[in-house]
Amino acid sequence: MKPVIRWISIASSCLVWGLPFAMEEPAPVSRVAVTAELERLMSEHGFEVRGIEQTADALARVEGETLSARLQALLENFDYVLVQTPTGGIERVIILGEKVAYLPPPIVVENEAGGNPANDSVESGAPPGEIVLSTQRKGDSHLLTLILEGPNNRRIEQVLLIDTGADQVVLPASLVVSLGLEAGALREQQVQTANGTIQARVGVLPALWLGETRIPEVSAAFIEDQRLGGQALLGMNVLGRFRMTIDDANSQVTLASK
């Protein structure tokens, strides 16, 4: 005969008088070395991590039922990009660096005379035909703060990672509504990035602003935020129009007309 398991519950209304009531201490949150845990997960699930050296000495929580959730907890103090397989698995994790407080430059609205929106990261005194922009550093990568222009002159400030391996601008899908784009106007397409080929919805932005320079009709690929890790990319459909020089020492990028 199979054993019968009986569950016995004790009513919560039963109290023992005369005994002091003590609150249980909450269980301590488990924390592990990020590098060691990433290496364990890589071995177990077969994905690749780039920039793992930046997690040296870092500790993080261990929680989550899925691999994505565990990685999110482990890397909560880092900026990173998750690249997923077509079936939803994790193919690659790219760690850009530790999160730092970011103070965006003020957005300058177009003036009555029809001037261009300014960006205070533009350096004055640049030679004619050159655009000089300040960058933020994330490990070996450079980030630019630019203005995206949607229909009806709607403008959004966005931080984009300079990615010469991306064939076009890549943006989080959450920006489709914010920019005022019609979802029906976007087409399904595979796009190439430095991290591989990714399925995306592609449309055209009325413009993208590099400081005071307006680049009209810019193709942009929108990818689900979770797959992109929230990090927008500035690809070669914009960068390829210029001769680009990156000054690591001064955290600047110079874009010169070809």
Rank of each mutant, 00 (worst) to 15 (best):
Q252N: 03
L19M: 12
T164R: 11
Q168P: 01
I107S: 13
V34G: 04
G184F: 12
L205W: 12
A126R: 15
E188A: 08
V49T: 05
A166D: 08
G150N: 08
T213N: 02
L179D: 01
Q252T: 02
D247P: 06
R137C: 01
T87A: 10
T135S: 05
R137M: 04
G196Q: 05
S13T: 09
S68L: 15
I90C: 05
S251M: 10
V177Q: 15
E53S: 05
L233V: 01
A183E: 15
A27P: 13
A22G: 01
E53F: 02
E123C: 09
L160D: 06
G230N: 08
S174A: 13
P206L: 04
A36N: 09
V62H: 11
K2C: 01
R70C: 05
H142R: 13
I131G: 10
S9N: 07
S43Q: 13
A200I: 06
K99V: 01
E130N: 06
K138W: 07
E123Q: 14
F47C: 06
Q226C: 06
T193K: 10
A207L: 07
E217L: 11
V49Q: 14
N116C: 04
G240Q: 07
L146V: 11
T254C: 07
G240W: 01
L233R: 09
V191Q: 07
G165Q: 05
A183Y: 13
G229W: 10
V218P: 12
G230P: 10
V100D: 06
A22I: 15
E188S: 12
M23H: 12
P104D: 05
T87R: 12
F78A: 02
G196P: 08
V32P: 12
V4P: 01
E76W: 05
V32G: 10
G211V: 01
G125C: 00
E110G: 10
V62C: 06
A11E: 14
I131N: 09
D247R: 11
G46V: 09
L146R: 12
R227W: 01
L161Y: 13
Q54W: 07
S9Y: 14
H142K: 09
S174G: 04
L96V: 01
N152I: 07
N237V: 09
A69F: 08
V176K: 11
R241D: 04
E39P: 00
R154T: 04
I162H: 10
Q136T: 03
L59N: 11
S251V: 02
L75G: 00
E188G: 00
D167E: 15
E76A: 08
V253N: 04
N152E: 15
H45Q: 06
L144D: 03
W209L: 04
R187A: 00
N153W: 08
R214S: 00
G165W: 08
D57N: 11
G229C: 06
R241M: 02
E91T: 01
E123T: 08
K99Q: 10
L59E: 14
Q158C: 04
V81S: 11
A11Q: 12
L74P: 11
E25V: 04
I131P: 07
S219C: 06
V177K: 15
L148N: 07
V177Y: 14
P28S: 11
L38N: 04
E182A: 11
A58P: 03
Y80S: 13
G97V: 03
L186P: 14
Q226Y: 12
L103N: 12
I156Q: 14
P127V: 03
Q226I: 15
D247T: 09
